[in-house]
Write a protein that binds this DNA or RNA. Sequence first.
DNA 1: CTGAAAGCGCTAACAG
DNA 2: CTGTTAGCGCTTTCAG
Lengths: 347, 347
Amino acid sequence: MTTMKEIAEAAGVSISTVSLVLNGRDEGRVKAPLAALVREKADELGYTVNPLARSLRTCRTRILGFISEEVATTPYAGGIILGAQDAASTYGYMIITVSTDGRASEENEIATLKRYGVDGFFYSKMSNRIASVPASLGDYPVVMVDATDANNQIPSIEPDEFQIAYDATKRLIQADCKRIAYIGCSENMIAQDGRFSGYQAALQDSGFAYDPSLVCNVLNNGPALRAVDKLFDERNPDGFFCFNDARAWYVYECAARRGLTVGKDVSIVGVDNHRVLAETLEPQLTTVELPHYEMGYWAACKLISMIERKPVDSSSWPNTTAPMPPLDSPIPAKIHCALIEKGSVRS
Amino acid sequence: MTTMKEIAEAAGVSISTVSLVLNGRDEGRVKAPLAALVREKADELGYTVNPLARSLRTCRTRILGFISEEVATTPYAGGIILGAQDAASTYGYMIITVSTDGRASEENEIATLKRYGVDGFFYSKMSNRIASVPASLGDYPVVMVDATDANNQIPSIEPDEFQIAYDATKRLIQADCKRIAYIGCSENMIAQDGRFSGYQAALQDSGFAYDPSLVCNVLNNGPALRAVDKLFDERNPDGFFCFNDARAWYVYECAARRGLTVGKDVSIVGVDNHRVLAETLEPQLTTVELPHYEMGYWAACKLISMIERKPVDSSSWPNTTAPMPPLDSPIPAKIHCALIEKGSVRS
DNA sequence: CTGAAAGCGCTAACAG
DNA sequence: CTGTTAGCGCTTTCAG
């Protein structure tokens, strides 16, 4: 690794001049030709900064810490982290990810990350939950991802659960469904609340009466399947908005057992949590892909802008299914998931 | 952050003495009581080393670089990275993950990681593919994960595809299935080759004739479903080993359409790639979970042992469904996936 | 057995 | 405009 010292020698100047030039602080401080010479030599010798040395001096590492629950890292988290990395990478940052499984290990990991000198933290609970960041993160820039701050203080990036359901339900109405069921989740989750409301609102806005007997909140496996089966028998719905892929499968199976064709006799719009629906049931149903990548990307941009105390240029952001909110939008911000209309709801 | 200097002052000794003691190099070099005093003061002041400063001197960062393909990070990778992190964490290492999408970006990311001073690299292609590590990694410790080294030089940790299929097929035989089908993947993949061989070997070892008409290699969606449907009509299998969850689902649906009960009339053993089978179809079929976590864990242990040029203690390794090979086992090594017998193959 | 001193590569006052 | 100087916190000879 070539050092500034070597460049200084090659160019016949002092190290500080080299530092000035290579950090772009030479404007009006170093004569242009000299600066050019330095740059030339640096190029020639293939200079790259030593981030370690720089960080030791500046107390800035350009490393971001990503804290997530153990359960988190599988299987949804990938997209979030990927998005965060891509954004970080374009701004010259790296990410160290740690996973925790409890208070103690969390504090440990935080302490370690602090020692490594990270500039800021992502704090993530997978599948949108209410949480509050540990006090030990207090004096650092923090962004929450796929989580909602209990105190509404920390910027949190989360899917727009209401809108997901609203759009999905509208899509079913538009496909001329008359009895639209919601197959939800009986566990207490933010996503469930938001989606249930969105479902109701869409119905109401279209002049449908909300009918509780068309709502079926279930857990998993056999019992869930039987509950959906019962709903079919009793209410014979012709459209289904499903909380996730597993629940879409229950509906699909019940339809198959009755000889009903999905996409013709009944329509399904489902959230594709595990990203496996697309491989199997398309084009018979329409899926909603949660914007994990986008959440990660935007969270990183937000975090970096907090660290550098300046807005980052959003024009370079990736094309997404969902429009990215501007950096200076009010926080907490929610990201809206667009429907992925690969299949047809009704053929 | 308290520094060694502060401890030195508090204890009335020199910085070098503090360094010696705090690094455990005091045996026979610093008098016991003095050493004790230093340790006490360090405790009192809550000293933790500054890894940046240490790294600048030692050229060792205790940071590992994890290079994976972009596509990789979703959705399988989570488990691998989680396992690698857990192992790294127990040995005092951290992991920086980067994802790449092509030769150029890969070289970029590698260069960046090198500048950050990582001690070694994971090189990962998700879903077991043959690959060779870039030359730029030449002089670093490297371990491949879920990938097979084209030159058979680099230690590579991968699932034991043959054994997965062998066990799954044996399980079906044991459940008294007579016409055992293999629903495979028509894309060219290592996993497909190994699993197909394992399927054949298990049949042969149990005195079954291998019947090509019971093998059905498919892609996805409608065409796949129809191919499985055809297999049902023509050969009426009573047992299925399925390459992944999507393929298990095709079989499941075909069975449902015929009024056959899975777990009774037909038996399915499927690899649960997306980890969604467990939520939906259990306990009607038996799943094989790929040992992603274990692969990551073991890869990290291997990498660290290469970096530190000493075997690491394998007694602290996590309980796994699969036995971990000993650290000094011949490389490349494969990890064996155990069957997850949550459901019953045949009720 | 302990301490002084040099230096890892870089930054940032401060002189000149 | 450019160079000198003094560290960031730690490790590591090398004297004493």
